[in-house]
């Protein structure tokens, strides 16, 4: 007997791998390898790729979605999901656009964007935790509701006329080619890393995802933590709304359409189990980088966006499928 099978078929090894071995064969290592190879292919494929400004533009491809992916990772690890994030962006952006018509200044706009995001997240969280509803259905509903409200307010119109100072968030640079969005994302990534991997709150998130009932009996306030996670996801969506609105300089109700699936793809590609209980922030950051590299590299080669989505879809399935196939082949080999 070298290992024990639990009733649920989970595999519990007698002893853990040595640190080096587990680091080399970790999901993050696989992602780093994928990222480096895509980077290399891009450098060979296009002469315009290896340029500081090109690489800086590249980051705009993923920072906004990746900000949401950080919070979404925690939410998915806890066993829930939020499909309404793109709709939250639409509603928050619409509210900001409306505020502009009343002459609200830049700081007010930011507060409104983030506040609307937080409120939407809290609404999702209340529905899921207070009424005990499945989050996938609740957020399909709120996804229609939030974007629907944006459509009611705006119809086929657009809001413009954002103040000049507002453009900094989505278009400004902190230093040389380092954009404000990138700095914000890296800062947020560090914060989320600490929350998930270095605090008891993070351990509780994992505990809830692995077994909510056991977590509850261990004294973890499951509902409260899930509520906080929904609020965080809403908050990050609000921040993303500020960035996107600032970058585009206008608001339409169809803004950020389909982002929710890209954000979830990032999270899953980053090694977060869609069933909850496993995942890491470095993985999500790497996955965001990979998606940025793929879309930007293909963009330099004049590949249309819709064809890029094939690569993203294939990448998602392949990266999940290959380790499973690999493990199966290793098992079949005589020991």
């Amino acid at each position: 007997m070298s290992a024990t099978e639990t009733p649920h078929g989970r595999h519990i090894p007698d002893r853990l791998d040595r640190p080096l071995r587990s680091a080399v064969f970790s999901w993050e290592a696989l992602l780093i390898a994928v990222a480096i190879s895509i980077f290399a292919v891009n450098s060979f494929a296009s002469p315009y790729f290896l340029d500081a400004w090109s690489l800086s533009d590249l980051t705009f491809n993923f920072t906004e979605k990746a900000l949401i992916a950080l919070a979404m990772a925690l939410l998915i690890i806890s066993g829930e999901i939020d499909l309404s994030v793109a709709a939250i962006i639409a509603l928050a952006s619409t509210m900001m656009g409306m505020a502009v018509q009343f002459g609200v200044g830049t700081s007010g706009l930011v507060a409104i964007g983030i506040g609307v995001g937080l409120a939407c997240g809290a609404f999702n969280g209340l529905l899921v935790t207070r009424l005990g509803l499945p989050s996938i259905v609740v957020t399909i509903g709120t996804m229609s509701l939030f974007r629907g409200v944006a459509f009611i307010i705006l119809g086929d119109q657009a809001y413009k006329g954002y103040p000049e100072s507002f453009a900094f968030f989505g278009q400004g640079y902190v230093w040389w080619v380092v954009s404000f969005e990138l700095v914000l994302f890296l800062g947020a990534a560090v914060i989320y890393y600490v929350i998930l991997h270095r605090t008891s709150f993070g351990r509780r998130v994992f505990a809830i995802g692995n077994n909510p009932v056991a977590a509850q009996f261990s004294g973890v306030r499951v509902e409260r933590i899930k509520f906080i996670l929904f609020c965080l996801t809403g908050l990050m969506s609000g921040i993303a709304a500020v960035l996107i609105t600032s970058r585009l300089g206008s608001t339409r109700p169809s803004i950020a359409q389909g982002y929710e699936l890209e954000v979830i793809t990032m999270v899953v590609l980053g090694g977060v189990s869609i069933l909850g209980g496993a995942g890491s922030i470095p993985g999500v950051v790497l996955a965001a980088l990979i998606m940025g590299l793929v879309t930007f590299g293909l963009g330099l080669l004049n590949v249309p966006g819709i064809v890029m989505s094939i690569f993203i879809g294939l990448l998602l399935i392949l990266v999940i499928a290959l380790p499973i196939v690999w493990r199966r082949l290793m098992k079949e080999r005589p020991a």
């Binding site: 509803l133 399909i140 996804m143 229609s144 629907g148 459509f151 009611i152 119809g155 109700p253």
Partner: peptide, 18 residues
């Protein structure tokens, strides 16, 4: 306005789940 449709069906979904 047909722009109301999305919000109405969203509310219907939430109500149905509840």
């Amino acid at each position: 306005s047909p722009f109301w449709q999305m919000a109405i069906s969203g509310s219907a979904i939430i109500l149905a789940v509840v």
